[in-house]
Write a protein that binds this DNA or RNA. Structure first.
Lengths: 169, 169
DNA sequence: CCATCAGAGTCCACAAAAAGGACTCAGGAC
DNA sequence: GTCCTGAGTCCTTTTTGTGGACTCTGATGG
């Protein structure tokens, strides 16, 4: 973001930063791996457990947290002549994590993969390879070099006003 | 990715998945926060420490890991008439994390923010707001609904061949 | 009606990692 | 020589994770 100016502190406080807030919900090794499996389609307790070889206590805690955050849902399901069981499908909020996760996958593809990519995206219509990139308002890709960050120094105040609009919002 | 087929296991093993490999390097709460500060421009040990209020032992360990991964660099710097000290700038590999991190920020903006965004991106040329999105090969934005995932079942084998090309690569 | 099975957990003992604070070490400046 | 600052290390306490056994529930089957 900066090239030679010495930055001593992040310009956005941890409490106001939507990135660090995201990390509070999903920024934990097991949570990230659970979400990876979930985005691949896994939904059931024992399937997560076997897929990731995660301790059952940890899985139980993480799933509860993800449900509380609204990223997953806890729901009963019933297979043919089976009794009712529980599954953990992603909500819209959870499915929206596909974009950052694919951006991260792309990063891994580039820097960690020997050039082999087990998972790629393609267009249903044209079959073209799809990637994640910066785009402008017309939906045209923009190179990283042409981008600058904008910090809104009043974000904290405006957030406070939004939360209790009685006091002047 | 799937809508009603029951998926029992991830189609890509943890060892082959470039997403889970990425998480091995950066998928830890403190590591993610250190990288956030680094992308904001922070570089020095005590600055990271104060910015994040991170225990010094943890910071020390994490920075060593990030240097070993090639995400950060450990380098001496010298200010005007000061003695030489150490800084931790991001490498190209580290700076490339801006894309997944901005994708994650966008997710936080949408789901966690009350609509307030302290950090946004804009085009240096046109001033337009920049966002992160799926794009096709011509650099045109594509909606999520038009995308499908493609799994390469031979990725594991091809990766092995790439790593020791003497045996037939 | 009793035993069995599978999914979805909980409980407990042990190990690893994080938190917090004091301490060290190096090299200029005073 | 003494002070100061940046960049760590060391040590103790607390928290979290790990791994395995155990529980609970409701269908199935003999």
């Amino acid at each position: 973001m900066k090239d030679d100016t010495p930055v001593r502190r992040s310009p956005v406080s941890l409490a106001d930063c939507n990135l660090s807030r995201s990390f509070e919900l999903v920024g934990d090794r097991w949570t990230l791996l659970i979400l990876r499996s979930a985005l691949y389609g896994v939904r059931r307790f024992d399937d997560f457990q076997a897929d990731l070889d995660i301790p059952r206590t940890v899985l139980s805690n993480r799933l509860a947290g993800l449900v509380e955050s609204g990223i997953m849902e806890k729901r009963a399901y019933r297979e043919e002549g089976q009794r009712s069981r529980v599954e953990y499908p992603l909500t819209d909020m959870g499915r929206a994590l596909m974009l950052p996760f694919m951006a991260m996958t792309q990063w891994g593809d580039k820097f960690l993969s020997d050039g082999v990519m087990p998972l790629t995206l393609r267009s249903r219509k044209t079959g073209e390879r799809i990637s994640v990139a910066y785009t402008d308002e017309q939906g045209r890709a923009v190179s990283f070099a042409d981008i600058e960050a904008v910090i809104d120094p009043d974000a904290r105040k405006r957030a406070a006003r939004k939360r209790k609009p009685a006091k002047g919002g």
